[in-house]
């Protein structure tokens, strides 16, 4: 092998090695940093792990929002029109959080099966429903007709 070839081979080897190392690390980081989505029915059935970070969501039950006026605590129920779960939160709810609309919350389940949320997401657009929520509702056979996927018009 000529020295030039050797050098080229070394470079290619480095590149391939670096790339595969990077992809391996990436997949590893992915596997430990993903949050699975669970619908209320799944959580009530005990399918969601207790203590691990998960995402949960559904429609906010009308009239369920309980706000403590002396602290930041707030709790509300979400439903897939089959089962309900309670979500506890201690931060400011997003602007577009409203009763009767879809939300997704990130957090951990406590031993009473309530979600202690670290983040609550409602979307920029009032007509938008998170796809997970839409699917969970569809599975529960309770897709409200007008709500999801009406033309969205927001842009970044």
């Amino acid at each position: 092998m000529t020295p030039k070839r050797k050098q080229k081979l070394m470079l290619i080897g480095l590149m391939v090695g670096g790339l595969s190392l990077a992809i391996g690390l990436t997949l590893y980081a992915l596997s430990s940093n993903i949050n699975l989505f669970y619908a209320p029915t799944q959580i009530v059935a005990g399918e969601a792990p207790e203590g691990a970070e998960i995402r949960a969501g559904g429609m906010v039950v009308e009239g369920s929002v309980e706000r403590d006026t002396q602290s930041m605590k707030v709790r509300f129920a979400v439903t897939d029109y089959n089962q309900e779960i309670w979500i506890n939160y201690e931060k400011i709810l997003p602007d577009l959080f409203r009763e009767g609309q879809g939300v997704v919350a990130v957090g951990r389940l406590n031993d009473q099966g309530e979600l202690m949320a670290s983040q609550v997401l409602a979307r920029h657009d009032e007509n938008y429903m998170p796809p997970e929520v839409a699917e969970a509702l569809k599975l529960a056979g309770e897709m409200p007709e007008a709500a999801p996927f009406i033309r969205n018009t927001s842009n970044k």
Binding site: A29, L30, N33, I34, N35, L36, F37, R55, E132
Partner: peptide, 14 residues
């Protein structure tokens, strides 16, 4: 295989 989301910890870690 389910609905997941990949959060900022993944991106930051790499």
């Amino acid at each position: 295989s389910g609905k997941i989301s990949v959060g900022p910890p993944y991106f930051n870690a790499l």
